[in-house]
Design a protein around this nucleic acid. Structure first.
Length: 945
RNA sequence: GCGGAUGUGGCGAAAUUGGUAGACGCGCUAGACUUAGGAUCUAGUGCCGUGAGGCUUGUAGGUUCGAGUCCUAUCAUCCGCACCA
């Protein structure tokens, strides 16, 4: 019987759909949650790289199910975002329409591959019953603040109560420890005297979702702000447009409050080292000291941050960031013009300029700071190499031990004082954190304070300085993070609307029972002429506070009818908690019920690309931790284990046209001519051999092409490039499915190599996998009928079977799917046409995760009337795996080696005797006296002579 | 500059974690069956050498009876962070 994969695949895909084979509900079995990063449905459809991760997770899901787990394996769409909107602007189509179309196309393509998704749980981030919960979470963040003492988010009411009774005074007499944008200090009386607007302004300083006036990444071409992870090398990730820094009022999420927990959490989860490292870098924890400096002949004091508190005696100048508020305070009248000019110069420079040329620039403010350790007056400079956004935006410069300070000192001729014994700073700074401190204070200098670091190691000196600074109240120990708050507004249309209206300039949340606030229709998607976001075009986009409803924009009177927020949320809003929604997708009372969350807990296995390391995977963890603080979810980390599948690159093919002709020369002969390589559609090339007729038909200009062949063939050149339409190297999964079947596609994608590695797609080799499936298939059938015997298996057959059961199970647990495919091939070779039911039936179950359609067909042919998905994973028996003899490598003084087969149960003494009695051993020994025989049990025999 | 990962045949890759390197597949060679072959089957295939034999896991050392695997340097490629004080 022929292997008619398209009939089989169609038949079982329908069967699974009709029988709801993959539908899951909470039951009393142990759970397993296997999740793929949901796709963004672009217009291009899926290429062969997209399903790689889906196939791997599908195999794992099916395996876990066969092992008796209740497996949640859902799929959905991340449907809001910039590309759909850019497309809408270009084509005039509503993004909702193109998105719906794209989703349908994705679904069609996914269905052909035979995944075990529970489609009843599908989510789309752009559908109102989904984004209701995105908006809800945002409102919870607005109504929360982060308490650093308890290290968790708390209701803002608690903070208000506190302000009403104690202001910002904490129990220990300091300022309350809460995450904020700016440290405020006020009494209860002051608080109580303020009006509503002032109170709201102050609260904004503490809310987890807040409006902040911050430097943002503004992308003029896209007409929107972007988050830090959406900008690379000064250009936008989407589109590659220039990005400039601009101060704007924006919604922000206080992700930075969670920096330490985001860092600590990494220790508890099973992710790859590289992605953990990437997140650690992104969070950028740095432990240091803040030290207060006063300005000479002035009341101004300012604070610097340093990780090298041991270098206090080597400070020779101070540097402020150009954006720092201190600049205006310390600039003297004489220097005012120079500083002003410098700041104008810095403003003109973009992020990109700064990255590309690292010129040493700066200007003296005219003021001097007093070093609290030496009493010296040291000049205060302004320079762009100090960043306003990190630390305090001000540094103490120690040119001897910091290369940037060194470059600055050399350029402006400032003094350099080495502080480490033996450090030579004549050519470059000594940045290493190793050595013994000296010159602290310098010998012969009258001590300003009674404190010395001389003779200590750097580590000890840092600790000693911290202690001194803290005790003498001139500073404090401080941990800084590079992680910044996430900017949460986008001046775009195609995103979640904020459930917010404005009264007297302050934002208010629309009532929770009125959610979702649905995205209104607009006729233009471009920003309005006034620079307002596209929602400014909406006809009905005002909030009637009294009647709690949306009304016509024209009615806004700012008394009872107020304007609604015009910005929308960014792409990561909808993708931050979608894994929770899958647990309980139709619940309209809660994001997820506590029953559903209590059962499914969190994601056991998460598969997706590593490009989300500093975006989605940070935001999701933050979002989940916030919901954890609220008590909405029971697990602090959303994704227990993460696997980053590699990218599938394209393998492009080239033809070589002889210059100024329409003649093409085959690869092997091209060096004899002056040729231009031209990308050719990989779909008309087979094993690098060009289908000449198809090529002529491909594009009109090639219709009359002529060819110089080698061995009667036209051989194409090739290169590995990104898979993209413009390279003509996109391979579509449907085409593979059509030609070879879904099972072959699944097996082959796994066979390509380790799941985490990036690799080019190369259709060469797919025949090998296809051949395996055909051979396997033919083993079962004869003359269109199942043809298996009930004979007992031989010891060899049992060994092969049990070896395979063991191997496949271990491989799946270790996500080593490529070796599983090999193991199946070896198994088939070893069985040598064995047609015994007792051997083949368990193998069908082993194959079910990999090639579900074939397995299902065979399973039913074997007489089962339920799905193979409901079978039990076979257990292997160690008994059958025992070797009758083991091959021992034998060496003589490490020089000569050969192998000897010995029974496994032999004692050490017997092994020695047998080895020495062995003919080959005797020959090798050649009369030499044996000094020692070493036996490492089960492994090796050594003879020392 | 800091950090992470990877280097094995013509190609994709294995290697029970320190024990006969190159499993399995592709490709290639020869043969069989075929009107035909982009079908199927059989055998061979790391490199050098007619040969016995020698060499071989980026390079150079080291530990070990024994190293692809561990240690130390070094080179190459890829990725993340980066005037972060």
């Amino acid at each position: 019987m022929d292997y008619k994969f398209n009939e089989i695949e169609k038949k079982w895909q329908e069967y699974w759909r009709e029988n709801k084979t993959y539908h899951v509900e909470i039951n009393d079995k142990p759970k397993c949650y296997v999740l793929d990063m949901f796709p963004y449905p672009s217009g291009a459809g899926l290429h062969v790289g997209h399903p790689l991760g889906y196939i791997a997770s599908d195999i794992y899901s099916r395996y876990k199910r066969l092992q008796g787990f209740n497996v949640l394996h859902p799929m959905g769409y991340d449907a809001y975002g910039l590309p759909a909107e850019q497309y809408a602007i270009q084509t005039g189509q509503h993004p909702a329409i193109t998105t719906t179309k794209n989703i349908a196309r994705y679904r069609e393509q996914l269905d052909k591959i035979g995944f075990c998704f529970d489609w009843d749980r599908e989510v789309k981030t752009c559908s109102p019953d989904y984004y209701k919960w995105t908006q809800w979470a945002f409102q919870q963040m607005f109504n929360s603040f982060y308490c650093n003492k308890h290290q968790k988010a708390m209701p803002i009411e608690k903070l208000i109560e506190r302000f009403e009774t104690k202001g910002t005074l904490s129990d220990d007499g300091g300022v309350i420890k809460v995450a904020c944008s700016e440290e405020l200090n006020f009494t209860a009386d002051e608080w109580n005297s303020w009006d509503e607007v002032k109170k709201q302004q102050v609260l904004m300083n503490y809310r987890i979702a807040y409006i902040g006036e911050t430097m943002v990444n503004w992308c003029p071409k896209l007409g929107t702000v972007l988050a830090n992870d959406e900008v690379v090398d000064g250009v936008s990730v989407r589109g590659g447009f220039p990005v400039v820094q601009k101060k704007m009022r924006q919604w922000c999420l206080r992700v930075s409050a969670y920096a330490q927990r985001l860092l600590d959490g990494l220790e508890t989860i099973d992710w790859s080292d590289s992605i953990k490292e990437t997140q650690k870098n992104w969070i950028g924890r740095s432990e240091g000291t803040e030290v207060e400096f006063s300005v000479k002949d002035s009341d101004v004091k300012f604070t610097i941050f340093t990780t090298r508190a041991d270098t206090m005696f080597g400070v020779t100048f101070m540097v402020l960031a150009p954006e720092s508020d201190y600049v205006a305070q310390v600039t003297t009248a004489e220097q005012k013009q120079a500083v002003g000019e410098y700041i104008d110069y810095v403003k003109k420079r973009t992020e990109r300029d700064r990255i590309s040329d690292r010129k040493v620039t700066g200007v003296f403010t005219g003021s001097y700071a007093i070093n609290p350790f030496t009493g010296e007056a040291i000049p205060i400079w302004v320079s762009e190499y100090v960043l306003s956004g990190y630390g305090t935006g001000a540094i103490m410069a120690v040119p001897a031990h910091d290369s940037r300070d060194y470059a600055f000192a050399k350029h402006f001729n400032l003094p350099i004082i080495p502080l480490i014994e033996g450090a030579d700073v004549s050519e470059e700074s000594y940045d290493a954190k190793e050595g013994i401190v000296s010159n602290s204070p310098r010998p012969g200098v009258k001590p300003y304070i009674d404190f010395s670091l001389n003779g200590l190691t750097i580590k000890e000196a840092i600790a000693a300085t911290k202690k001194y600074v803290t005790e003498n109240n001139i500073g404090r120990v401080k941990v800084n993070y590079r992680l910044r708050d996430a900017i949460f507004s986008r001046q775009r249309y195609w995103g979640e609307p904020f459930p917010v209206y404005y009264k007297e300039g302050m934002p208010y949340m629309i009532p929770a029972d009125k959610l979702p606030l649905e995205l209104p229709d607009v006729d233009k998607f471009l920003p309005t002429e006034t620079g307002e976001p596209p929602l400014g075009h909406a006809q009905k986009w005002a909030w009637d506070e009294k009647n709690a409803q949306i009304v016509d924009t024209k009615l806004i009177d700012n008394k009872t009818i107020f304007p609604l927020e015009l910005n929308t949320m960014p792409g990561f809003a909808g993708s931050s908690a979608y894994y929770l929604r899958y647990m309980d997708p139709h619940n309209d009372k809660a994001l997820v019920s506590s029953e559903a969350n209590g059962y499914w807990q969190n994601v056991d296995l998460y598969l997706g690309g590593s490009e989300h390391a500093t975006g989605h995977l940070i935001y999701s963890r933050f979002w989940n931790k916030f919901l954890f603080d609220l008590g909405v979810v029971c697990q602090e980390e959303p994704f227990k284990k993460l696997i980053n599948q590699g990218m599938i690159q394209g393998r492009s093919n080239f033809v070589y046209r002889i210059k100024d002709t329409n003649t093409f020369v085959s690869l092997g002969l091209k060096d004899q001519y002056d040729v231009t390589p031209i990308h050719v559609d990989v779909n008309i090339v087979n094993n690098d051999q060009l289908d000449i007729e198809a090529f002529k038909a491909w594009q009109p200009e090639f219709a009359t092409a002529e060819f110089i062949l080698e061995d009667g063939k036209y051989i194409c050149g090739w290169a590995v490039e990104k898979m993209s339409k413009s390279m003509f190297n996109v391979v579509n999964p449907d085409m593979i499915v059509e030609k070879y079947g879904a099972d072959t596609l699944r097996m082959y994608e796994m066979f390509l190599g380790p799941i985490e590695q990036s690799k080019p797609w190369d259709t060469k080799g797919i025949d090998g996998v296809n051949r395996f499936i055909k051979k396997l298939w033919n083993l079962f059938w004869n003359d269109g009928k199942l043809d298996l015997s009930d004979e007992q298996p031989t010891a060899e057959e049992l060994k092969t079977l049990h070896k395979t059961i063991k191997k496949i199970g271990e491989d799946i647990e270790h996500f080593s799917f490529n070796t599983s495919v090999s193991a199946f091939m070896i198994c088939l070779n070893e069985l040598k046409g064995c047609k015994k039911r007792s051997v083949l039936e368990p193998i069908v179950v082993l194959l079910a995760p990999f090639m579900p359609h074939v397995a299902e067909e065979l399973w039913h042919a074997l007489g089962h009337d339920t799905s193979v998905c409901d079978a039990a994973w076979p257990k292997y028996n160690e008994e059958y795996l025992k070797e009758s003899a083991v091959k021992y490598p034998i060496s003589f003084n490490g020089k000569v080696r050969f192998n000897l087969e010995l029974p496994t149960d032999m004692s050490k003494d017997d092994i020695e005797k047998t080895v020495l009695a062995n003919e080959q051993t005797a020959k090798q020994l050649d009369g030499k006296a044996v000094k020692k025989v070493i036996v490492v049990p089960g492994k090796i025999v050594n003879i020392v002579c």
